[in-house]
Design a protein around this nucleic acid. Structure first.
Length: 587
DNA sequence: AAAAAAT
C-alpha cells in the first residue's frame, strides 16, 4: 500500500487502524528509529514538557490547560480541585501512552541534550515563546528576520519589504517554522489565529526558490476559500515586490487553462489556489496544468481541507498530492486548529515529520474579550442585535450566521437600519464577493453579515466586534470565527448569542472561553458532556431555526417588496425596535 | 445534510 492508497482509505472515512495499516505503521517505526539514532549527532529539541503540554486533539475542550508562562497564569485561577486531580490523572495516562506508542521516541534521551552548549538557550527561547516542537534534528528558532538573510540567503529586498510593512521581528510560529522549512523539513504547524502563519510559510518559499526560474510552478499553496487564496496571493506579491517572482492565482479556471498549459506554465514560480480549480485544470485532456516541478506544497487551514465526506475537500487534496509528482516535493500543513485525523495522516505519510505547536492546541486567543449572551429565542437575537446597534458600537463588525438563507434574511432585516451593512456568502457572484471584501477592508461597510465563508484565515485589519448571531456548530468553528478579531496582538471583542436550542454545544464553547481567561458562568461548565455522536450530528445538522423576520405578516403580502422606510411606516414596520429591551438577557 | 469548491 503506498501513501496515496492510504490517503484514499482515510479519505473514505476509515479510521486509523494499526492492523489494517500495519505496513505503513512499520515504515513509520523505521523512521522513528532513524530519528533516535540521529540524536547523537545533532541537537534535538523535544523535552518531557512537550508531552505534558500537548492537549491531544482538543476534542472535548475539557482540560484546563495550565500555562507555564506566568502572564496567563493569573487569569486561570478558577480551578476546582476535583477537576485538577482528574486532569493530572489524564495527563499521566497520556504520557504513558505517548511513551509506549509511537508519539515520541526521544523522551528518554533528555539527558544527552546537556552535551550541547546551545541547548539551554534554545530551550529558553522556545519556552519563552511557547513554542513546542516534536521531532528530530530540529533547527534552532530564528529571533530576527536578518538571520534569514545571513543563514538562509533570503533576499534582502524581501526583508526590506517586511520592514516597510511594519514587521520588525518574527512571531513564534515564524521563528520555528521558517528554519524548519528552510531545512526542507515536512511539518505540521499549529498556531493561534492571527499569529502570522501566512508569513511563516511564504517567507521560506521565497527563500527556498531563491530566484525566478523558468522551471514551472515550484511552490503551490492551497486554501479552502477564494477569499483566502486571494489574500495569500496579495501577501506574496507584497513580500516579493522588487524580487521578480512570478506569483499566480487561478481566478478563472477556463482562462487559466490557456495560460498555464504545458508550454506557458514554465513562466511561473508560485501558485495559489483553491483545490477544485486545480483539479479542473489537471483533468483537462491534455492536462492544462503541470505540477511535476513542485518542490513545496503548502496546505493552509489544513484541518478544513482534510474534511471528508462526499463533497469534502479531502479527495481533491489527494488528487493535488498525486499531481505533485516530482521526487523533491515537500509538504507543509498549517492551521490554527488541528484534528487527530490530520495529525495521524501526517505522522504516517510525511517524511520525518516535525510538529510545531504554539501555545496550547485548539484554543482561542487571549486578546479577544469573549462573551456569551442568552437571548431566549430566535426573535430575541434580532432584538439583541438591534440593541447592540442602538447602543452604539465601534465598526467594523462581522456577524456570523449558519446558512446562506439566514445570511440573506438577516441582511434584509438590517438593511433599513441606517447603517452600512452588506452580506457575503458562496451564492453571491465572485464580483459581488470581491466588492464586498474590498468595501469592508476600506471601511465603507460597517457591518458585514457572513457565513463560514469568512470564518477562516481572513485578515481584516481592526475588526472590533465579531458577533456570533447563530451559535457555531463546533468549538473549532468558534475559535476560527472569533479569530477574525484580536489579531496580531490587538484587542478584540466577540459576542455569542445563544438560545435554549444551543444548550448541547454550550459546554464545549464555554470551556474554550474559560481557557482563554474570560469569565463564564459555572453552571455551563457543569453541563453534561455531550456524546461525540451527538456532537458530530450537530456539526452536520445544526438546530433548526425559524426564519429571521420581525415584519408582521400583514405587511409582507407583496412578495419581494421591501417594507416602506417612510417616517410613518417605520413605526408600523418595526413597532417594537427602539424601545424594547430584551428581557431575556441575563448576562 | 452547513458551507465550500469548476464551467
Amino acid at each position: 500500500m503506498d501513501a496515496f492508497d492510504l490517503f484514499r482509505k482515510l479519505g473514505a472515512g476509515a479510521k486509523f487502524d494499526l492492523k489494517r495499516f500495519g505496513q505503513d505503521a512499520a515504515r513509520f517505526k523505521v523512521n522513528l528509529t532513524d530519528a533516535a539514532g540521529d540524536v547523537l549527532d545533532e541537537k534535538i529539541t523535544s523535552n518531557s514538557k512537550v508531552t505534558e503540554e500537548e492537549e491531544g486533539d482538543g476534542e472535548e475542550y475539557e482540560e484546563g490547560g495550565e500555562s507555564e508562562d506566568s502572564g496567563a497564569g493569573g487569569k486561570r485561577k478558577h480551578k476546582d480541585e476535583e477537576r485538577d486531580v482528574k486532569r493530572k490523572k489524564k495527563k499521566t495516562k497520556r504520557k504513558q501512552t505517548e511513551l509506549e506508542g509511537t508519539g515520541c521516541g526521544c523522551l528518554e534521551l533528555t539527558g544527552r541534550f546537556q552535551l550541547f552548549l546551545s541547548f539551554p538557550d534554545v530551550n529558553r527561547i522556545r519556552s519563552q515563546h511557547r513554542i513546542n516542537v516534536h521531532g528530530s534534528d530540529v533547527p534552532d528558532p530564528v529571533c530576527t528576520f536578518e538571520e534569514l538573510q545571513s543563514e538562509y540567503r533570503l533576499n534582502p529586498r524581501v526583508i526590506q519589504n517586511l520592514k516597510d510593512a511594519g514587521l520588525n521581528s518574527p512571531t513564534p510560529v515564524q521563528m520555528q517554522a521558517i528554519p524548519l522549512m528552510m531545512h526542507g523539513r515536512e511539518l505540521l504547524a499549529c498556531a493561534p489565529t492571527g499569529s502570522g502563519k501566512t508569513l511563516a510559510f511564504c517567507l521560506p518559499l521565497l527563500a527556498h526558490l531563491q530566484q525566478p526560474a523558468n522551471l514551472g510552478f515550484r511552490a503551490v499553496i492551497i486554501s479552502p476559500t477564494r477569499e483566502l487564496a486571494s489574500q495569500t496571493y496579495r501577501e506574496l506579491l507584497r513580500l516579493s515586490e522588487g524580487v521578480g517572482f512570478r506569483v499566480h492565482i487561478i481566478d478563472k479556471a477556463s482562462l487559466a487553462a490557456k495560460k498555464y498549459g504545458p508550454q506557458s506554465s514554465k513562466k511561473y514560480d508560485i501558485l495559489v489556489s483553491t483545490p477544485n480549480r486545480l483539479i479542473f485544470l489537471l483533468n483537462q485532456d491534455p492536462p492544462a496544468l503541470d505540477l511535476s516541478s513542485v518542490e513545496w506544497l503548502v496546505v493552509d487551514e489544513s484541518d478544513k481541507l482534510f474534511e471528508g465526506g462526499k463533497t469534502g475537500f479531502r479527495e481533491q487534496l489527494a488528487t493535488v498530492f498525486l499531481a505533485c509528482s516530482g521526487s523533491k516535493v515537500r509538504r507543509a500543513f498549517y492551521s490554527a486548529t488541528c484534528t487527530s485525523d490530520v495529525e495521524q495522516w501526517c505522522r504516517l505519510n510525511l517524511d520525518n515529520l516535525v510538529s510545531v505547536n504554539i501555545g496550547h492546541r485548539n484554543t482561542a486567543v487571549e486578546t479577544v474579550e469573549q462573551e456569551l449572551l442568552f437571548v431566549g429565542t430566535e426573535n430575541g437575537k434580532l432584538v439583541a442585535m438591534r440593541d447592540i446597534i442602538k447602543k452604539g458600537f465601534l465598526p467594523p463588525m462581522l456577524v456570523f450566521v449558519q446558512s446562506i438563507d439566514r445570511a440573506r434574511e438577516l441582511f434584509h432585516e438590517l438593511v433599513y437600519e441606517g447603517i452600512n451593512v452588506d452580506v457575503i456568502h458562496a451564492d453571491r457572484t465572485q464580483q459581488q464577493r470581491d466588492n464586498v471584501v474590498s468595501s469592508f477592508r476600506s471601511g465603507k461597510i460597517w457591518v458585514l453579515i457572513c457565513t463560514a465563508l469568512l470564518a477562516r484565515g481572513i485578515d481584516f485589519k481592526g475588526v472590533n466586534l465579531v458577533l456570533n448571531y447563530d451559535f457555531p456548530t463546533s468549538a473549532v468553528e468558534y475559535i476560527h470565527r472569533i479569530g477574525r478579531t484580536g489579531r496580531a496582538g490587538h484587542q478584540g471583542k466577540a459576542i455569542t448569542f445563544f438560545t435554549e436550542n444551543d444548550k448541547p454545544l454550550l459546554r464545549s464553547i464555554a470551556n474554550v472561553i474559560k481557557q482563554a481567561g474570560c469569565p463564564v458562568p459555572d453552571y455551563m461548565i457543569g453541563f453534561k458532556k455531550i456524546h461525540s455522536k451527538v456532537k458530530r450530528r450537530l456539526e452536520k445538522r445544526p438546530p433548526k431555526r425559524s426564519a429571521i423576520c420581525t415584519t408582521p405578516r400583514f405587511l409582507m403580502k407583496k412578495k419581494g417588496n421591501a417594507p416602506n422606510r417612510g417616517q410613518k411606516g417605520e413605526k408600523q414596520t418595526f413597532p417594537y425596535i427602539s424601545s424594547h429591551i430584551c428581557s431575556c438577557i441575563i448576562n
